[in-house]
Nucleic acid binder design. Structure first.
Lengths: 127, 127
DNA sequence: CAGGATCCTGGTAGATACTG
DNA sequence: CAGTATCTACCAGGATCCTG
């Protein structure tokens, strides 16, 4: 699988970083939303129920810093800022889909496993 | 990409959960290590430099709870406990590889983007 | 409209000590 | 050998207030 050959410099760190970035609470859904097309800040907020303005800003900043998302400011009044996936950002979408698809496909398995594990280890049924 | 068609129940939560689980500090490397073959607790510790006994335990418990890892206890003295990927655990490996490969392939891009971003936003060079 | 600054909370992770 | 228990530190994330 992830052999040392894939990791010549001895650092698997970048992988953790990437998984961590898109594994946080909002990045994944932001990427998903932007994959449908560029969006303004407020549009994004509305597209993503439950996200706070702070977390949307932070998430976008992180994605922008990594070069996955671009930020375009239009010097207008009122202000207009548009976010979009960069080319790099678009390249991450397929592997993300792959893992997301796995998650959907095995949601029931995982849930069942968790239920069983919890039952065995906390034995509420006192079986 | 991740369309609503993939997500009929309206919950993208499971995806976040999965990304979160393997995106934490140790799960990914534990999966990677176990993918090479079953390992005992102490062997895992030695295979994963820097991990604390506590975090190894916690990580294994989480993976076990989700059904990705199995735990086999041999009632011997001294104790012997062997961990291995389950069938479900093995199925997650390919999509994980896909994303890991992406991360490796774009490590330089990401690093460069970060450097540029930091330079632009903190402008230490006062360019 | 877009987002910075501040305060607060809970979960993740490390260090250490103890146990069957 | 393979853990559990406890204590602490840090960071992600939420709520709120303020600004260009």
């Amino acid at each position: 699988m992830i052999t040392d050959a894939d990791c010549p410099s001895g650092g698997i760190e970048i992988v953790r970083e990437v998984f961590n970035r898109i594994g946080d609470k909002w990045s994944l859904i932001v990427i998903r939303t932007l994959d449908a097309g560029p969006q303004r800040f407020t549009a994004l907020r509305h597209s993503i129920p439950g996200i706070s303005q702070r977390m949307l800003t932070l998430t976008l900043r992180q994605l922008e810093r990594d070069g996955l998302v671009s930020r375009t400011i239009y010097g207008e009044v009122p202000p207009r800022v548009e976010y979009a996936l960069t080319e790099l950002g678009e390249t991450i979408v397929p592997p993300v889909i792959a893992l997301a698809t796995w998650a959907f496909a095995h949601e029931r398995d995982i849930t069942a496993n968790r239920d069983r594990y919890d039952a065995e280890h906390f034995a509420e049924e006192a079986g």
